[in-house]
């Protein structure tokens, strides 16, 4: 029953639209306002529901090229998840450890993780760029970025 990509996506989108519709119907309404806050969301929810049903019943018409895009080699999946994990760590510690430390570490380890072997260039770039950007924002433009545990 659920063969074909369109069917799966159609189903997911239908669930999404039902969730969105449910929330739209919870919105408060006010007297004396001709088109209330819930009107547009309700319309959008129903339209998406109709479209997802249409997608469900439409034939898969993807080209070979498009199908190839979906086949990600295992090695690349690992790389993507790795970069994702690095990003998550970056965001989580960004305000605690501060912009400079986190960005230097991020640029260095992300490049290294992705296979950049020239450690000297990598170190220079990952130190110079974040510090340069930090100085521009904080000292020149007086826009505060998280300083974290560093004294400046």
């Amino acid at each position: 029953m659920l063969q074909g990509v369109n069917r799966k996506i159609g189903l997911i989108l239908a669930l999404l639209s039902i969730g969105y519709l449910y929330m739209s119907y919870q919105l408060p309404t006010y007297p004396y306002i001709p088109v209330d806050a819930d009107a547009v969301p309700k319309t959008l929810g129903w339209v998406l529901l109709v479209l997802s049903v249409a997608l469900f019943f439409s034939k898969d018409s993807d080209s070979e090229e498009q199908k190839a895009k979906r086949r990600i080699p295992k090695k690349d999946v690992k790389a993507l998840l790795g970069v994702g994990a690095l990003l998550l760590i970056y965001i989580m510690l960004f305000e605690t450890l501060g912009f400079i430390i986190m960005t230097v570490l991020f640029v260095y380890f992300c490049s290294w993780f992705l296979g950049y072997k020239n450690h000297i260039v990598n170190a220079i770039v990952s130190i110079v760029f974040p510090i340069a950007l930090y100085s521009i924002f904080v000292f020149m433009l007086q826009i505060k970025l998280p300083q974290g545990i560093l004294p400046f």
Binding site: V83, L87, W112, Y116, N122, L145
Partner: peptide, 17 residues
């Protein structure tokens, strides 16, 4: 690899600012 890190850095600061 280096370019990727720098684009990510660019986007992160862009959004944070």
């Amino acid at each position: 690899p280096l370019l990727i890190s720098l684009v990510l850095m660019f986007s992160l600061i862009g959004v944070y600012a």
